[in-house]
Design a protein around this nucleic acid. Structure first.
Lengths: 142, 142
DNA sequence: AAATAAAACTGTAATTATTACAAAATTAAA
DNA sequence: TTTAATTTTGTAATAATTACAGTTTTATTT
């Protein structure tokens, strides 16, 4: 059911080629906030005609058109998110996994003195240890 | 007056070598949230015995000890901040400059369902155009 | 349907931030 | 002052991303 992916592309003014649909479909179905390389490795077996450069180019196009969000929370690589509804992210310092988080009273938060800054977006990032890793942290030395 | 820098190091359990003091001093005095390379380039003329690896190692040490904050807001490189008081950051999409922002009612914001996540830190990032760049955006095609 | 133009895609090479590592220099301890 | 420990250096390795030029695919025109 890649119709949703195709519709999203058209909605954001992106011509829906097969590769583009596959990449968008992957992002919509896999909520792991994957990096470009993860997307490539996951799709390549079923789409052997896919190149890594295309994945990079396509993700950049998606982001420029506002069809996906780029998440800069991991110093190693850029992660991507097809969920455009307002939400925050959590990143485990140990395993690096990124989870979605819902926020309450987020609207109450205001910038005190924005001066002449023209603000267009806001991202909230939490850091810490996920359930699995905090258990491991308690019992091991590493 | 590098006493403040030295005191900060001692306070966070870091032995205050001359290089370490110089790097911390730079971070305390320059609120531009510099990357490792920027720090190296700025200090090298006056400290020709400084190596880039030392800057990277030192910043990592500072961060591990909690003496400075690493800001992951720029996909290109990690930025550092000696201001440990709670505040948000703004990054200009055009020129890449990072500014500090104060928040109001930040405490009111809550995570709805953290589950078994052990949260240790929170960062708020704004994106947009700084005063200078938003003017340029209005009148130029680029 | 053939020719042409435009767009999408590929593969390799280049770039760049960061890390690994082993040796050298400095500092502290015995 | 000899030894041990720590800090620092410089080069090489790693890895994410981009540049680019050529190729394939798709769309358009004749």
């Amino acid at each position: 059911m890649k119709i949703e992916a195709k519709d999203r592309l058209v909605e954001y003014g992106i011509k829906p080629s097969l590769h583009r649909i596959a990449i968008m479909d992957y992002l919509i179905k896999n909520h792991v906030h994957p990096a470009a390389d993860t997307i490539f490795s996951s799709l390549y077996p079923s789409i052997p005609t896919l190149s890594k450069t295309t994945v990079y180019n396509t993700l950049k196009l998606f982001e420029e058109q506002g069809a996906v969000a780029a998440i800069v929370i991991d110093e190693k690589n850029v992660r991507y998110d097809a969920d455009l509804s307002p939400h925050a992210h959590f990143r485990c310092k140990k395993c690096g996994a990124i989870h979605d988080l819902k926020l309450e009273n987020f609207e109450a938060m205001k910038v005190v003195n924005a001066g002449n800054l023209q603000i267009t977006e806001c991202q909230v990032y939490f850091g810490g240890y996920c359930g699995n890793c905090s258990i491991l942290t308690d019992y091991s030395v590493n």
